[in-house]
């Protein structure tokens, strides 16, 4: 994956497969502390202790088309390559939260990439699911949520408008700062 935002899209796919009605992506940038924390959280069916233990193993997968599952393993690796860390918590019947913390200056850190594109793709293809984005950078923050939009209005046009709005708000928050 060339962007951290693509890992987040991929992890959100696991949430969808877990039957989540609500998925939250969060991004926290702290340039002074040289830290970027990203997380994907859902209210899906969760994992039992054994599955949770094995879920970062590339040779563990729930898919049937092939026998490897790289999504979580790759997300974990992307954080660790930057000198950061990865944690995943899950509770059956409650949901799952995967968090990847990055060292911004880590030379093997992938760029954050387009969070707006990741949100838009998820929103466009999954009108039954509510998506939230919490985005914070150096003390400023905003949240975006699809919750108040009725199902019938969750069209591709709505997703396209969401993409524009999210991008605009990200740009506002980052001001002229160099994208990470």
């Amino acid at each position: 994956m060339r962007e951290i935002a693509l890992h987040m899209a991929d992890i959100a796919e696991n949430s969808l497969a877990a039957g989540a009605a609500r998925i939250k992506l969060s991004v926290m940038i702290d340039r002074a502390a040289d830290r970027l924390i990203t997380a994907v959280e859902d209210n899906g069916r969760g994992m039992d202790a054994d599955t949770l233990y094995r879920c970062t193993d590339p040779f563990m997968t729930t898919r049937t088309a092939r026998r490897v599952g790289l999504g979580i393993a790759l997300f974990k690796l992307s954080a660790e390559q930057s000198g950061g860390s990865f944690t995943i918590r899950s509770e059956q019947g409650r949901g799952t939260r995967a968090e990847a913390a990055y060292i911004i200056s880590g030379i093997d850190r992938a760029p954050l990439g387009s969070i707006a594109d990741t949100m838009a793709a998820l929103i466009a293809a999954n009108p039954e699911t509510d998506f939230t984005l919490e985005y914070a950078a150096d003390g400023k923050a905003f949240a975006f949520a699809t919750d108040t939009t009725p199902y019938n209005d969750r069209t591709p046009a709505f997703a396209a408008a969401a993409k524009k709005e999210i991008q605009q708000r990200i740009d506002e928050i980052n001001g002229g700062a160099e994208p990470i």
């Binding site: 994956m1 693509l6 594109d117 793709a121 466009a124 293809a125 069209t155 591709p156 396209a160 993409k163």
Partner: peptide, 24 residues
């Protein structure tokens, strides 16, 4: 649109948003 890990790594997100924008 195929959005598994393999699809996303190959560029599926950009394909999905292109469909979204063109349909809109």
């Amino acid at each position: 649109v195929g959005m598994a890990t393999c699809g996303i790594a190959a560029g599926a997100r950009g394909v999905l948003t292109a469909f979204m924008e063109e349909l809109a």
